[in-house]
Simulated assay, not measured.
Amino acid sequence: MPLTADRNTPYKHANAVPVAVAANVKIYAGALVCANAGGFATPGAIATTLTYLGRSEEFVDNTGGANGARTVLVRRSEAFKWSNSSADPVTQAEFGKTVYVVDDETVAKTSATNTRSPAGRVVGIDADGVWIE
Rank of each mutant, 00 (worst) to 15 (best):
H13S: 03
H13F: 03
N15V: 00
A16Y: 00
V17W: 00
V19N: 01
V19R: 03
A23L: 01
A23G: 09
N24R: 05
N24C: 03
V25R: 07
K26L: 11
I27H: 04
L32D: 00
L32V: 00
C34D: 09
C34P: 03
N36P: 06
N36Q: 08
A37P: 01
A37T: 13
G39C: 10
A41M: 03
P43H: 06
P43S: 07
G44P: 05
G44I: 06
A45T: 13
A45Q: 15
I46E: 14
A47T: 11
A47N: 15
A47E: 05
T48L: 05
T48F: 02
T49K: 05
T49Y: 09
T49L: 07
L50T: 07
Y52Q: 10
Y52M: 15
L53W: 01
L53P: 00
G54Y: 01
R55S: 03
R55C: 06
R55M: 10
E57H: 01
E57G: 11
F59N: 15
V60M: 07
D61C: 08
D61E: 04
D61F: 03
G64A: 04
G65E: 03
A66E: 07
A69N: 12
A69S: 14
A69F: 09
A69L: 02
R70I: 00
V74G: 00
V74S: 01
V74H: 02
R75Q: 10
R76W: 00
S77D: 06
S77P: 00
E78S: 02
E78R: 01
F80Y: 10
F80H: 05
F80D: 02
K81C: 12
K81W: 01
S83E: 13
S83V: 10
N84D: 15
S86L: 12
A87K: 14
D88S: 12
V90Y: 09
Q92R: 12
F95C: 01
F95A: 11
G96I: 09
G96A: 08
G96Y: 08
T98L: 07
V99G: 04
Y100G: 02
D103E: 09
T106Q: 08
V107E: 06
K109L: 08
K109I: 03
T110K: 09
S111N: 14
S111G: 11
T115P: 04
P118I: 08
A119L: 15
G120K: 09
R121Q: 15
V122E: 13
V122M: 13
V123T: 15
V123H: 10
I125T: 12
D126M: 07
D126Y: 13
D126Q: 13
A127G: 13
V130C: 10
V130W: 07
